[in-house]
Design a protein around this nucleic acid. Structure first.
Lengths: 345, 345
DNA sequence: TTTTGGATTGTAACCGATTGCATTAGCCAA
DNA sequence: TTGGCTAATGCAATCGGTTACAATCCAAAA
């Protein structure tokens, strides 16, 4: 049971050439269907499995997609990966997954690994502090497609999958304003990243649209961790005017704010309304339940892989600079419902 | 920028044979260190990257580990994967990850894909309803090591990584009993899986140890989903005696129980104490915070890969039937604290 | 009967790295 | 000078499919 079966073995048994066997197994049209059948049968009998390396070596393609994400252990990312895996698997592609742990250095080294593994395409969501595109240049030069999702990099050669973060930020802020809030603190992440700068931009526009002046002091850039939540509450208490709402750019940090605020005796949403972002499972469980933005993670992963595979197989020769924008949705829950307290979600 | 550099190019430039170049790049002792240096230099200059396929084809190994998990989108699994990725990456191994979506059928097809991809080793956590070992026989026959973690299969050829589920189940149950509970409903998962049957066994033993009679009607086998949580509450209300505690075999379902119970007017833990399992992030956020069992996911992933790689490189020729048992820990929180209400966690 | 052309199948040169078995050079001792 | 030995390098086969370019066969057309 040790020896591997090759197309040569099959060829010898059936008195054919290995070329014919190879073509038959790949369903080449020139091969007689009866021949194909007998080849398929003996292949099955012998327990033949194709040697991917030999095949890749000759074909120069790997049927493997590389994925680099900031962290594997976040509910959003695992949803994304679940979506990716499902589509890739169906299309016969493998996924090579690695995490940058939010570090530019590790992202670079992962990119190198992917490059050496000769992935057919690369799917990336950027780390917190990544600057520049150097580590992806190799791919572009070798014409390996690179696609960014969620935390993207704007590059003429790369497709992107995002949600409309500006609109989402606008919607959240408008909602808070409609609830009567006029002093809204925005706690955000690293503004190098599109997701955060765009949400901020939506926040600004909503303020303007409602005639509220924008003030830089009301934007707090953090790492959006649990600790940042507490720090944000500290910061808030030092502001000249007490805010009546906080819009946090992620749920984890928003929840930590809620817990901290409750501990300090604030009532939510009566004293301060809170809104988060991502629709993390915890957002439904926390009390009061957290107003947030639904983020289609699984769908995003699925579409990213679909786009990539279409690109690779040439099904869609769409402009590689095309960008898919997915639908997000504001989920209004108790943490921000100052009016219509009756309508429960 | 299209042409790939090969060892032949390097050889030609330096007037050496490809054999020497290959050996130099692999740091073979027979090669003169000066020669090595000049080869390394020109390789770097030319932007050479080794062709894995050619190498794999010749070597018959892939430096890739296959991973099959029930779901990617669970906080426990993403912790496991994060741990795996870190170790594998450091050791120069790649991870090929796929999910069975809790279906035996998909698990089988994934195993086949892994087999055809010729992974050097396979790491598996079983789906909900998997029976039998057939789909892994191929690996055993070809001497590809298979390691099970968490949801394991007992097989003489396969290593396993687990926590002591029986002990954990015992500890949870004992704790509830110490809080004065005598009627403890146990909501569990598919009893084919070791993790659930072992926890159940711990539950039984704890009852016995405290002189409480075991009753089958007090064990509810479910799929541990959110819906199952509600169904469990329904079931509970139909029992002849109202339970004073529920021990649920996972946090997601436990939390859904809590929410349902609260909605029906029960006070937790005064009327009913609740305990979960896994230390999912939500368990800290729910109110009251959920007593649960800390599950070392990241560590489990790391150790699984470490064990596998040691096995592959022959560093440890330990009996393949060896089993690693990791430490878990009972985290007592408010949902079960009927006594000593002062000690907060 | 000869020609022509489509349908099948075969030949052989790759793809790029690895490695068992020489071979060569250089040095020391006999 | 010669033999022996070590260190360093080269030769050439090999891993298993793929594919451009024939070659072959057979029936239909001329």
């Amino acid at each position: 049971m040790e020896k591997e079966v090759t197309i040569y073995d099959i060829a010898k048994i059936l008195n054919l050439s290995p070329a014919t066997v190879s073509r038959a197994l790949n369903d080449h049209p020139a091969i007689n269907s009866k021949t194909k059948l007998s080849i398929a049968n003996t292949a099955a009998e012998l327990g033949y499995r194709s040697n991917t390396f030999a095949s890749n070596l000759r074909r120069k393609s790997t049927s493997t997609l590389g994925v680099i994400v900031p962290r594997l252990d976040s509910s959003f990312m695992s949803a994304v990966l679940a979506g990716m895996e499902e589509v890739a698997n169906k299309a016969g592609y493998n996924l090579l997954i690695s995490q940058s742990l939010e570090s530019q250095g590790k992202e670079k080294s992962n990119a190198k690994t992917m490059y050496n593994s000769r992935v057919d395409g690369l799917l990336v969501s950027l780390a917190y502090d990544t600057e520049g595109f150097d580590h992806f240049e190799n791919f572009v030069k070798k014409r390996v497609p690179v696609l960014f999702f969620d935390r993207i990099f704007d590059h003429s050669e790369c497709a992107t999958i995002v949600i409309d973060n500006e609109k989402a930020g606008y919607d959240v802020t408008s909602h808070l304003i409609m609830q009567g809030c006029t002093h809204i603190l925005h706690v955000t992440g690293n503004l190098k990243r599109n997701v955060y700068i765009d949400r901020l931009s939506g926040y600004r526009k909503a303020l303007e649209a409602h005639g509220i002046a924008f003030d830089e002091a009301w934007v707090l850039e953090t790492d959006l961790s649990r600790e940042a939540g507490k720090a944000a509450v500290d910061y808030m208490e030092k502001l000249p005017v007490r805010p009546d709402a906080i819009f946090v750019a992620n749920d984890i940090c928003a929840i930590s704010c809620i817990q901290e605020l409750k501990q300090r005796g604030y009532r939510i949403p009566e004293d301060i309304a809170i809104a988060g972002f991502n629709n993390d499972p915890v957002s439904q469980v926390v009390e009061p339940s957290l107003t947030t933005v639904y983020y289609p993670g699984k769908e995003m992963g699925a579409i990213a892989v679909k786009t990539m595979i279409n690109h690779l197989t040439g099904t869609s020769d769409i402009d590689p600079a095309n960008s898919v924008v997915l639908q997000s949705e504001l989920l209004i829950r108790d943490s921000s419902r100052k009016l219509q307290r009756e309508a429960r979600n």
